[in-house]
Design a protein around this nucleic acid. Structure first.
Lengths: 201, 201, 201, 201
DNA sequence: CATGAATGAGTTTTCATTCAT
DNA sequence: TATGAATGAAAACTCATTCAT
């Protein structure tokens, strides 16, 4: 039903192109953060990027691909941040792994929380799934490392990992909205660690 | 900035108009569930309801009010379901209260899970806030009953209640999407209870 | 091209009807004065009159007839006021006749100046012509009484009367808009008399 | 209450767009003259101009701005015509100045009398005020040059200038409607001069 | 007489996308 | 490569008027 390609048309090779390409993505980011998805129009983006609308369509096949590109980049970066931190945790105790995991999650979401909020709240679901599915499995494996020693009755390891992911994600995301100060000050960070310790140890 | 009234224009008095009013809301529901918010247009709704577009605007001042009405009704019903169940819990043990709370939450979201999913995932945030704020405080007080005997270090009663709410909500909501069968079979229900027991007792 | 009848459908005979009929016209007047012709809709009028839209259409065949009726009434009343005053002037000197004429004109327009302004400025031309033509000739004859002794070179009596009418009308009408205080205080009245004396005597 | 911008969105730079821009304004003019403001719809204009409705909205932010642009242009042109003629009058006698003034006024309004008539009679007042206010003061100063030597009792110079303006304007405007031939033949022109001589000398 | 419900036929406006240069 | 002009297709919304009761 929705066979529109979300991939950028071409990755720019020349220098001038790169500038244009990034100006477009940056304009998209700014509009998303400042005015939300509702007001994101391709003409608006091109205007703000200082390029013509036709140039925009040289790099992006359609409006959705703009947001998808941004979202993919964002997800990749988030994943990298988390993986990097967790690499160090491979041989640590579960308690340490929990702490590192929470730190990684909060750090990853603290980067550009406004943009995160937009993706979480405003971007239509269909745009997200493809990208999210990809990193999901790997992510759940990472969490499984943490929960491998936990023995909770009547919940499989897989479901537990799922639950941890949802819990952590939702508390951080909603924290961005409801308790931004607590998130930045590290309070939510501490609360999360404490709760996971109680739950998993 | 967003001074648009979301309330229905007039509540129908005659029988004939009652039918129209509900046909419109039902059409809205169907389109939301089957095709999502993106394709929800007033003309589409009127068509599906079998009434003229002008009739739609006799009862609803704008497109948003359609969704807002649906959302308000849904939220009210959810709240009623929860309050009714919790009324019985007033003098129970914390353990029982947790179980009843989870039952209430899951039951409330099992009613029309597809519609719930749409509200959760597709409806732009601005449409929601107004309605949700209302029932929020009362809801947090209810949760406070449960957590009153819990002694978790470094988390205030208020923040704990907030966390419980977010956790429970998000697991149920995301469960509708990722683990629908587990939700309907009661599996998620049991997992939630178990986790809250471990966390709060 | 525009064969719509502007006449009221039926003049009400019963008492209750009269009340409805007048409520409708009064509502029309209020809306015209307070919000202008742009916002005058039949539904709005019916609402404000406290009657159903269908009742409105029992007395008036269409929207235009509402305004036309009001305009006709207003014009008749204006004409009556003027004629009454001028009746006394039949055998006076020209100077006295000028003064009485100006007094009559100003008085006629002072009655409901806001409504006058709306008719002058906002009502589409097509609605006016029919009514105005009628009273026009009689009015010009009256003016001719004043100018009969004037001897201005190169202007016929008829054209002079036309000029006097336009002049007087426009100064009063624009006075309502630009110099309302001067109109009500009698200043414009005095100026007009003075000018006509200089012109015609 | 009326914060709608009336200014054109962009002034065309390329040749092609210049043509479009003018086609739109010309279509507007034609419709106003032939069918009046009531039937002036943006779709109608776009159709007649032979461009798409979307193109219209590239140059004009809303329907009102179409008329406002036309009116502004017209007013500017009128003002230019008058100022040019009056420049020559600076050091003339009052009698000559009156004659030149009347000539200028009539000439300015003879240009496109049909359009003038539409502006005068059909365009809702709110659209006009902004534009007219601008040139008004300068215009009254010009008239003051003429009336400076006049000694009429009980009327200030300022009010006299106002009166002259209203009188002249209204006679010409109404002349377009009631006595078009007399206007074009110069008859009204002569009458006006004669009257102003009698009044001001 | 009176009514509230219902609507046909428009109206203004938007926007992702394509085209000519 | 880059652009500004142009547009098709549809969106939200309005209102004078008719109809069933």
């Amino acid at each position: 039903m929705n066979e529109i390609s979300l991939k950028p048309l071409k990755t720019p090779t020349q220098e001038r192109s790169w500038a244009t390409y990034h100006a477009i993505l940056e304009a998209t980011t700014h509009i998303l953060i400042e005015q939300g998805y509702k007001t994101l129009t391709t003409n608006h983006v091109a205007d703000r990027a200082g390029v013509s609308i036709a140039s925009l369509y040289q790099y992006f096949p359609n409006k959705e691909s703009l947001v998808a590109t941004l979202h993919t980049n964002h997800a990749k970066q988030t994943r990298n941040t988390i993986n990097e931190i967790l690499k160090k945790a491979k041989n640590s105790s579960t308690a340490t792994m929990i702490d590192l995991f929470v730190d990684a999650m909060v750090k990853a979401h603290s980067d550009n929380p406004e943009l995160h909020r937009v993706f979480q709240e405003e971007i239509p679901r269909l745009l997200k799934t493809a990208i999210l599915k990809e990193g999901n499995d790997q992510f759940l494996e990472t969490i499984a490392l943490i929960t491998q020693n936990t023995d909770l009755p009547s919940i499989s390891a897989k479901d537990l990992a799922w639950t941890i992911r949802i819990m952590t994600h939702s508390i951080i995301h909603q924290g961005i909205i409801d308790r931004k100060d607590d998130l930045l000050s590290g309070k939510i960070n501490r609360e999360l660690k404490m709760m996971l310790h109680k739950l998993l140890l």
